[in-house]
């Protein structure tokens, strides 16, 4: 088991470049997730504006 643990450690260390590689991939993940969140927030905003607009039309 300890052999496997060692391998994973090595793998994540990325030959001493771990901090660079992982922070780069972490940042990319963050930006992509933020863009997905932006879809949702824009959709909610538009839905609210549409609702308000239709309500005004009915009046």
């Amino acid at each position: 088991m300890s052999g496997l643990y060692h391998d994973i450690q090595d793998c994540l260390a990325m030959g001493h470049y771990g901090a660079y590689v992982w922070s780069a991939y972490g940042l990319v993940t963050m930006v992509l997730v933020l863009n997905i969140w932006a879809i949702k927030s824009q959709r909610q905003q538009i839905r609210r504006r549409l609702q308000r607009w239709f309500k005004e039309q009915v009046k």
Partner: peptide
């Protein structure tokens, strides 16, 4: 692509593992 680039490819002979940033850059 990212998992393959991070774990399935040998390190670069000059840049070591740091070159893996290429797959997002």
């Amino acid at each position: 692509g990212s998992l393959w680039g991070l774990f399935g490819v040998p390190p670069d002979y000059q840049q070591g593992d740091a070159f893996r940033i290429i797959y997002v850059h």
